[in-house]
Amino acid sequence: MPLEQQLPLPIRLRDDAVFSNFFPGEANQATYQAVQAAAQGTGERFVYLSGPVHSGRTHLLQAACHSVQEQGGTAIYLPFAEHETLTPAWLQDLSGFSLVCIDDVEAMTGKADWEEALFHLYNQLQAAASQLIISSNVPPAQLAIKLADLQSRLTAGLVLMLNPLPDEDKLAALQLRAKARGLYISPTVGAFLLRRVSRDMRALFAVLDTLDNASLAAKRKLTVPFVKEVLSL
């Protein structure tokens, strides 16, 4: 739909950012389940998701939005890192939403107007019994927040950690994502990719896109020689 293309990325949820498409591994099993429970309204009302870049925070936040919308609720996803288009006015009176997700909250810390807006949003959502999920690259106690009232509220929630996956789990995550596209990645090909391309999940998923398109175009299965050819390795 042409209209969808007009919407800038920040607001749009990625179609494939859903729970079933997330591979938690053992390292993130508890976190994965706790976010799912929160999205289904059976968990904590405020969840803080902490983890390094490319650890899947955005995926989980958007998955929670999808899940709430599927249940007939309303959800909004606000990426603070995309701040060119954002103003603190965004946070006014969002208590009508069943779920508010804030990604990369550290991008706005230290700015008085943002901190105050977030503080009021927190209070409003609490009063309205709405769900709030905040993500950041650091745990709440390490955020450089000036407003102590806000910091203490953030530490009061359920703080969950997302850890980088060990290599064998990265392979499994890659295979899960490929399977969703009807693409098969053999352990050999997977191991080759992890060795030669990158061990960062976002880069790996990008490579997957390239390989998927090439395999469709050439009508070939993914083999090591074919992968080498496509990626010019």
């Binding site: 009302r45 309205a128 019994a129 709405s130 769900q131």
Partner: peptide, 10 residues
């Protein structure tokens, strides 16, 4: 608001 309560049960 009524619908919301069914989702975000508290």
């Amino acid at each position: 608001t009524i619908e919301k309560k069914s989702v975000a049960s508290s």
